[in-house]
């Protein structure tokens, strides 16, 4: 009993440290700029307004559309909504009226992505983006690396100090990603057990991707999947690696040694799926940006640049 009571403050300290240990605002600011810029770059040409004109036969509203009684919108309404969303993404990227821009990005983005899934199944690449946008909308991500900050600096306002307010949004995305991978791994174990690895599942996934009329996703980049499929031990090894990465991914939250292995492993796993099987994870991939310590990267670049400028001018060697 007394041991558990002594343990509680330590647990609380670790919990507080995980979420709220002071961090510089630059890291979150760079994450914000790259994340929203990335979404905009991926989706700028994507036009969802056409869904306003498709037959009602396809209309299958997802649960919260039904709960809120949201109807199938018109094409004109969708056009207006998607342009507002893209503008809000651009504003959030450069950090103009960041609070408003991130809030609008979250609300309209969630609506538009939910709408897409009301016309055919559920994809797994966008759910994580909703949570990342929610955390940024509730955060002070415009306090650095933004036009808002530049404007405040011009008015003589001091740069913000390191704070827990700049740490939790990044950590929240980490937790959301861990949920995604962990649940995917557990779902495989729950429905198939180790047979997911020892059966022909991975081999068949690789083969089916090369049948244009059988696959359910984009075409793979090449037919390397067939070569892998012909080496069953290799396909089973890939299945085992995928299952291990997914199930163990939450360890990346706590272990700084395992973090690069698990995070880079998951990134390469998803890129590999795109190359040999076809499904692309476009906006999902952007959430890996939150694992990079951008403040340290910026510091390293600054140091390199300043050491170069301080170095004596190279003398001409004359023979």
């Amino acid at each position: 009993m007394s041991r558990s009571i002594r343990f509680l403050p330590r647990l609380r300290g670790a919990w507080d440290r995980f979420w709220f240990a002071p961090s510089p605002p630059l890291n979150l600011g760079i994450c914000r700029a790259l994340f929203y810029g990335g979404i905009l770059a991926v989706l700028v040409r994507y036009d969802v307004s056409g869904f306003g004109g498709v037959s009602d036969a396809f209309w299958n509203p997802i649960w919260w559309f039904r709960l809120l009684g949201l109807p199938k919108p018109s094409q004109e309404a969708l056009q207006a909504i998607q342009w507002t969303w893209k503008l809000s993404l651009a504003a959030a990227c450069v950090g103009v009226s960041t609070r408003l821009a991130t809030a609008v990005s979250f609300l309209l983005g969630t609506y538009l992505m939910g709408l897409l899934y009301s016309f055919g199944g559920t994809s797994h690449r966008n759910g994580i983006v909703v949570f990342a946008m929610a955390s940024l909308a509730l955060s002070r991500c415009g306090d650095a690396f933004s036009l808002d900050r530049w404007w405040r600096a011009r008015r003589g306002l001091a740069a913000p100090e390191p704070s827990g307010a700049y740490r939790w949004p990044v950590r929240f995305v980490w937790v959301a990603m861990s949920c995604v991978f962990f649940e995917a791994g557990i779902s495989k174990l729950r429905h198939s057990g180790l047979a997911w690895v020892t059966s022909d599942t991975m081999t068949l996934l690789l083969v089916q991707a090369n049948y244009p009329l059988v696959r359910q996703a984009n075409p793979p980049w090449n037919d390397w999947g067939l070569w892998l499929a012909r080496h069953r031990w290799l396909a089973r090894g890939l299945a085992a690696e995928s299952l291990a990465l997914e199930t163990l991914f939450p360890l990346a939250l706590f272990s700084s040694r395992l973090r690069p292995i698990l995070v880079l492993g998951a990134l390469f796993m998803q890129l590999g799926i795109t190359v040999v099987m076809g499904p692309n994870f476009d906006v999902f991939i952007l959430t890996y940006l939150f694992w990079v310590p951008w403040d340290r990267v910026a510091g390293w670049i600054r140091d390199r640049l300043s050491s170069r400028s301080e170095a004596p001018a190279p003398r001409l060697a004359v023979r």
């Binding site: 995917a184 779902s187 599942t201 068949l204």
Partner: peptide
């Protein structure tokens, strides 16, 4: 989501 996609053994 529980991400059940491709969770069945084939």
């Amino acid at each position: 989501s529980a991400y059940p996609m491709y969770s069945r053994a084939w």
